[in-house]
Structure formats: structure tokens, C-alpha cells
Design a protein around this nucleic acid. Structure first.
Length: 721
DNA sequence: AGTCCGATGGTTTTT
DNA sequence: CCATCGGACT
């Protein structure tokens, strides 16, 4: 393959990015503009044209899915495996570095990665020890706090003693938490990044080695990087001007968990000799949809600036439906989907996107009663299920008995007569003497501090773990897992559990054995890890799919956040109401409001052919009725691209008009959506919607002081304000 | 040890 | 409204 074949299939801008000289590059890639394509081709270009060995290439993503896809596409393009290339998630690569240099990272060789659930358990336990009342000091909040500090690269000891009580308390928790983790050999997600950063920062030779090795560094979804991730990238590329980032400031929707959109702006300062390319041609959506997206996002400031375009034509106008209530909304959406299917469309080409998970319910119910297959994203992933985590805890203990959270988790699961009293004594001993629970248990047995029954039960557990450790050495991975699942008594336990649930759990455990059988142990890239350790790391870093692959053709339900990166022919963006989307908490914060707007932009740009926007005039929320105003985002859309739908006049709508009618916004009548008006008695307001004809014409107005009202145009004395 | 009941609170999520 | 959690009870 020669150079030209890598770039012939690209458009001019993509080609510019792919064949750019080896220098820092910022690629602003709009939604659907071929961002992954550019990344993949850029890397292939380096290998083919610039003669860079795959060994000298680094590519970083946020999700495992993106990393896997990128590797496959590069290998397909080059028609050769590129094993030596480091492609992975920030966390996966950090983990790899820490494994390889555990000593220099001040970690035990046997360290294990824990997920946020494990992390929370540790924090709960330790706050109890610190005698913090968990109603006044929610452990979740402490967890959030600690992770936020780590994301900013701040260690507990470096926290400023800024006086206030809250901060001091949190600092204490953070300090204690670091201590527990270090002693148990456990590393949380944020810690992976922070440690990896410190490792390179504090080891000159190591840093020099990796800087030399990674001649070209590539980053996907750069707008989602947080402080520590960007700091790590800078360490690796400082002075080499070799950082190639692809991102879209307009799709930055993770600010709330530490992502710094500013990294894009700072990139330009930190790499003054950079090139910049904008990918604005969109290959996904039709004209109306792009126009809506462009118009909406133009309401944000501090943008890098970008306008999507397509040569695919206008397509269908966007439809807007004002539902009477949330049930009507669901009814409408599901009817449209059924129509789509009747017309020969696939259910899997349709998606219902909402701001918050709780909204899925109405749609699920409606889909259920109409027997329409659907799939809800979100919820528990495979490796997060209780039975799986229990099995993993046994496995983890077998390689590292000092893993306290795992010890706590299964010491009495299934119940084996180790009671609360025994455990409490053990915890106290462990805390006082700075021992792991394992060590404390051993000590207590040795000193005969336990009643015979408890001692026997405890000894049984310890023996079980030791035995597991022994067997592991002789058996293959999947045999080990099988052994664990059976001898631990977990299978027995779940077989007894009431039908449905227990059965599913047993199946999941069997699936775990199967996953172990299929696990692809790549010993060359295992650093100094054994197969079991690799498998456990895999389980922590790659939580797996939400549900087993259901191949059935079904409607896709998900939050706007999970929809990022996906596309559907037919999209329903629902619940466009003030307080819901934008969310209540964002209403009084300009920054968060802009992030909500970007989220809306993400939603709109998921649609390929047709987009429906819906909102409800009344919605039952937390048990009481609310009458939300239509989302401001609706008013920010170009009216000429939107068509309002009035379908079913027969619903119990407050103003049920005689005939169903369709009405284009602003096409006739005196008032437009969003137009400011003044009323003699009610004062100033804004037109929310209109219905009816002639004498019957009514407008709904949101008055600044008087609230929302429907007025008959024939009687109300309204003036344009 | 397991079940029931009342209080509580309630965006968004990957690793 | 309704899911989740912790405490109390059996």
C-alpha cells in the first residue's frame, strides 16, 4: 500500500489533518465529520509514509470500545497487525505503566484495580472509624471530593489548610483513605491516572525513555480530558511538539466530572507551533438537522467556532410535538415508531433520548403495552453484578489476601457463621495494629481470642482462600474460576435464592467461567502480570456490556450522555422542558447552562434522517404535578426548519379543538413562538405556543410575573412588547 | 440471619 | 411517586 491510498478516500480537510507535518495538531472535528477516520488514517500515515514503527506510536481514548475500534481499523487499513502500538484508554495505559514500573510507582507487585463501588465501601468503613455521622457526612460526597482532588492532581498532604471545617474533615478522610489503599494494595480509577503522572514526573530516566519511545502521541475526544490527563500528555510530549489531538468543544458534556474544556484553549498556548484543522463537513445528518444544531450552539460563547454543513440536501423538517402530559408524550413517540416500522424501518434505527434515566419509564410502559421490543442502556454492567463481584473477590483474595474490601465482601458470603461480633473485633485489631483484616484474623486465631465456633468458621474461610491460591498455580484460568465459583459455595447460595433472580445469578457465574475461558491472555504485553491478575484487571477496567447481546431488532432508549458517538436514522429528543432539560440545577448557572446546550447539540446531531422534539405541558414529577415551560432550547432553534405537530385533538387536552390540525410556526397569525408580548393585566411575557384558527385562536403565554396562561386571541388585549 | 418498615431523597457516567 | 437504605424486629 502506498501513501496515496491512505488519503484518497478523504475529503480536503481530513486529508490536511492526516498528511500534516509532524507537529502538534489540533483537529476540531464536528459531530459526524469523520473524526475517528482522521485519527486512524493519521496513524496509518505515520507508519506507511513517515516510516514510524508502530512501537513508537501512542494513541489514547476514553473508552475501551473506542480503543478497540481504533486498533482494528488501523490494522484493517494497514492489512497487518500492529501489536507493538500502544492504543488504549487513559486508565488502561496508566495501569500498564504502573504494572511495568510498580516499584518505582511505590506500589506492591500485586496491586489491584478497584472500581468505584469498592472505593465507596472503603470510604464508608473508614468514616465510621473516624466517627463521622454519615447523615452529616455522606460517604458519597467524600468519595466525590477525593476523586475531584485526584483529578486535579492534588494529594491529601498537598491540600491547603484553608481553614474551613468541611475541608479539614475531608482532608482527614482523604489521608486515611490513601493509607488504607496503600496498605491493601488497591488503586482506584483516579489513582491510576495520578500515579502514572507522578511516576513519569518523578523518574527522569523513565520519562526520557517514554518520550523517546512515543514519537507520535494521539488523543481522541480531547475536550473530555481532565487536568491530570492533560498534565500526563504534556509530560510525554513536552518539547517534542508531537501531540495530535482530536476533539469538539461543542460536544464537551462531562465538565461536571472534571473534564476541562479549557484544555483545548490551553493547547494553543502550550503548543505554539501547532497546526489546526476544522472538520465541518457532516456525513450523517440532513440539512435541517444541521441547521438546527448550528443555530442552537451559536448561543454559546467561548467557542472555537465551527459550522457543520452537508451536501446531502435539506431532508425532512424537524418535528415538534407539545404533549399534554408525559403519557401523551410516550404515546406519541411510540406511535411514530410503530409507523416507522410499518413503513419498513428497523426499530434499531430509532432512539429515544432523554436527559435523565427516570424518564425512560413512561416510554418503557408504552413500548411494553404495544409489544414493541426495546432496549434500555445504562444500569448494571456484567462485572458490576453482585454475584460476579463476589466471585471476583474470592479470586482477588487468592492473589492478595490483604485486599480488605474483598475480604469484607465475602468473608461471610455465603454465610458461614462468621458473625458481626467476630468481624468487629477483627476490624478493631486491624485498625489498632495497622494490619490487614487477613492478618488480624490470623492473629486472633493464633491467640485463641475467639469462641470455638467462630474460630472454626473463620479458619474454614482462611483455609478456603489459601486452597484457592494453591489450586490457581496448577489450573488454567477458567478452571480456577470454576473452582472458585463452586468451592466458595456461591453457586449453592444462588441456587437456593428465589427462582428468577437466583437462576440469573447462577447463569451469570457460569458466564464468568466462560469469559475466563475466552479470555485472551497476551503474555507478551502482560508486563509482569500472571493470567489471573490480568483477568482481574480486565474485569475492573472493562466492566463489559450492559446486557448480553440481544440480537433482536429493538428500539434504543438512553440518556443523551450515553448517546454521544452514536447515530440513528430516527431520533426522538424528549422532555424538552425548563427544569428537566436544561436541568433544574443548571438554570441559574451560565456555565452549566452552556453545557446543557452542548448536550442538546449532541442530541440533535445524533439524528440522520428525522428528528422529533417533544415536551409535555404537564408532567408528574416526584409525585406531584408540574407545569413546566417549554425548554429555552426550543426557542433557540431556527423556526423555518421546524414543523409543529398537532395530531390528536381527541386527547383529554385542556383545549381540545374540533379538528386535528398541523400548523407551521409563525406561518400565519400574528404571533410567533418566543415572541415577547405585553398584556394589560398580566404584564410582560413570551409566547410559548399557539393553537386554533380564527375566532378560536389561542396563545399560551409565559408571563414574567403572572405565570403561564392560555388566552383567546379574540378577547385578550395583547401588544407586541 | 433474614424480612419488613419507615425515612429519605431524587442529573448526567467511564474508567 | 418510587427506589434505596438502614434500623428494628422476628
Amino acid at each position: 500500500m502506498d501513501a496515496s491510498s491512505i488519503i484518497t478516500s478523504l475529503n480536503d480537510d481530513q486529508r490536511l489533518a492526516v498528511s500534516a507535518p509532524m507537529q502538534a495538531m489540533l483537529v476540531l472535528a464536528g459531530a459526524g465529520s469523520g473524526k475517528t477516520r482522521v485519527l486512524v488514517h493519521r496513524i496509518a500515515w505515520h507508519i506507511q509514509v513517515n516510516q514510524i514503527s508502530p512501537y513508537n506510536i501512542l494513541a489514547v481514548t476514553f473508552t475501551n470500545k473506542a480503543a478497540n475500534e481504533m486498533r482494528h481499523r488501523i490494522e484493517d487499513l494497514l492489512e497487518t497487525p500492529a501489536h507493538a502500538m500502544w492504543i488504549g484508554t487513559f486508565h488502561g495505559l496508566a495501569h500498564r505503566l504502573l504494572r511495568q514500573h510498580a516499584k518505582q510507582a511505590k506500589l506492591p507487585d500485586t496491586f489491584q484495580v478497584m472500581d468505584s463501588d469498592d472505593q465507596l465501601r472503603i470510604i464508608k468503613r473508614l468514616m465510621k472509624n473516624l466517627n463521622l455521622d454519615d447523615s452529616k457526612w455522606p460517604p458519597k460526597q467524600a468519595q466525590w471530593f477525593i476523586n475531584a482532588q485526584k483529578d486535579e492532581g492534588i494529594r491529601a498532604k498537598h491540600m491547603q489548610d484553608s481553614g474551613d471545617f468541611y475541608n479539614r474533615q475531608m482532608k482527614d478522610v482523604y489521608l486515611a483513605y490513601e493509607d488504607v489503599c496503600q496498605r491493601s494494595g488497591l488503586v482506584d480509577f483516579a489513582e491510576l491516572l495520578l500515579r502514572a503522572h507522578e511516576l513519569l514526573r518523578d523518574n527522569e530516566d523513565l520519562l526520557a525513555f517514554y518520550k523517546q519511545r512515543f514519537q507520535q502521541v494521539h488523543v481522541d475526544e480531547f475536550q473530555d480530558t481532565n487536568t491530570i490527563q492533560y498534565a500526563w500528555l504534556r509530560l510525554l510530549t513536552e518539547g517534542n511538539n508531537n501531540l495530535f489531538v482530536v476533539g469538539d468543544d461543542d460536544q464537551s458534556i462531562y465538565g461536571w466530572r472534571g473534564a476541562k474544556i479549557e484544555n483545548i484553549f490551553n493547547f494553543q498556548k502550550h503548543y505554539p507551533e501547532h497546526g489546526i484543522v476544522r472538520l465541518e463537513q457532516n456525513y450523517r445528518s440532513s440539512g435541517h438537522i444541521l441547521k438546527a444544531a448550528n443555530t442552537l450552539i451559536a448561543n454559546n460563547d467561548n467557542r472555537m467556532g465551527k459550522e457543520l454543513w452537508t451536501d446531502a440536501g435539506e431532508g425532512q423538517a424537524i418535528s415538534l410535538y407539545s404533549a399534554f402530559n408525559e403519557q401523551d408524550e410516550a404515546y406519541f413517540v411510540v406511535e411514530k415508531i410503530r409507523q416507522w416500522v410499518r413503513d419498513g424501518g428497523l426499530r434499531s434505527d430509532t432512539a429515544i433520548l432523554y436527559r435523565s434515566n427516570a424518564q425512560s419509564r413512561q416510554f418503557e410502559e408504552r413500548l411494553m403495552t404495544t409489544a414493541t421490543p426495546y432496549r434500555v442502556y445504562g444500569g448494571l454492567r456484567f462485572f458490576e453484578r453482585m454475584e460476579i463481584k463476589n466471585a471476583l473477590a474470592y479470586l482477588r483474595l487468592s492473589t492478595n489476601p490483604h485486599d480488605d474490601p474483598s475480604f469484607e465482601r465475602v468473608v461471610n458470603t455465603p454465610t458461614r457463621g462468621i458473625g458481626a461480633k467476630t468481624l468487629d473485633d477483627m476490624r478493631i485489631l486491624a485498625r489498632e495494629q495497622q494490619l490487614s483484616l487477613w492478618q488480624a484474623a490470623l492473629a486472633m486465631l493464633e491467640h485463641n481470642q475467639l469462641p470455638a465456633r467462630a474460630a472454626n468458621a473463620l479458619r474454614g474461610f482462611l483455609n478456603l482462600i489459601v486452597a484457592l491460591g494453591e489450586t490457581t498455580k496448577e489450573l488454567s484460568l477458567h478452571e480456577t474460576v470454576k473452582q472458585v465459583v463452586e468451592t466458595s459455595g456461591l453457586i449453592e447460595l444462588y441456587k437456593k435464592e428465589k427462582q428468577d433472580k437466583g437462576e440469573a445469578r447462577v447463569e451469570n457465574l457460569e458466564e464468568l467461567v466462560n469469559a475466563a475461558r475466552l479470555f485472551d491472555y497476551d503474555s507478551e504485553n502482560a508486563e509482569n502480570m500472571g493470567e489471573l491478575d490480568m483477568f482481574l484487571a480486565h474485569a475492573a477496567l472493562e466492566a463489559g456490556e450492559m446486557q448480553g447481546e440481544v440480537d433482536e431488532d429493538c428500539v434504543q432508549l438512553m440518556t443523551l450522555h450515553s448517546a454521544k458517538g452514536l447515530e440513528f436514522k430516527l431520533v426522538f429528543l424528549v422532555g424538552l422542558e425548563e427544569g428537566l432539560f436544561p436541568s433544574q440545577q443548571a438554570l441559574d448557572d451560565a456555565g452549566r447552562l452552556q453545557e446543557e446546550r452542548r448536550l442538546c447539540y449532541v442530541g440533535i446531531t445524533r439524528a440522520m434522517q428525522q428528528l422529533y422534539l417533544t415536551h409535555a405541558e404537564s408532567r408528574r414529577l416526584y409525585g406531584k404535578d408540574s407545569y413546566p415551560r417549554a425548554s429555552r432550547f426550543l426557542r433557540e432553534l431556527p423556526q423555518e426548519s421546524i414543523q409543529e405537530i398537532r395530531l390528536r385533538a381527541n386527547v383529554s387536552r385542556p383545549a381540545a379543538n374540533s379538528a386535528p390540525q398541523t400548523k407551521s410556526l409563525g406561518s400565519k397569525g400574528t404571533y410567533k413562538l418566543g415572541q415577547p408580548v405585553r398584556h394589560e393585566k398580566f404584564g410582560e411575557g413570551v409566547v410559548l405556543q399557539m393553537e386554533g384558527e380564527g375566532e378560536q385562536e389561542r396563545v399560551q403565554i409565559n408571563f414574567r410575573n403572572a405565570g403561564i396562561k392560555w388566552l383567546m386571541l379574540a378577547y385578550a388585549k395583547l401588544d407586541a412588547a
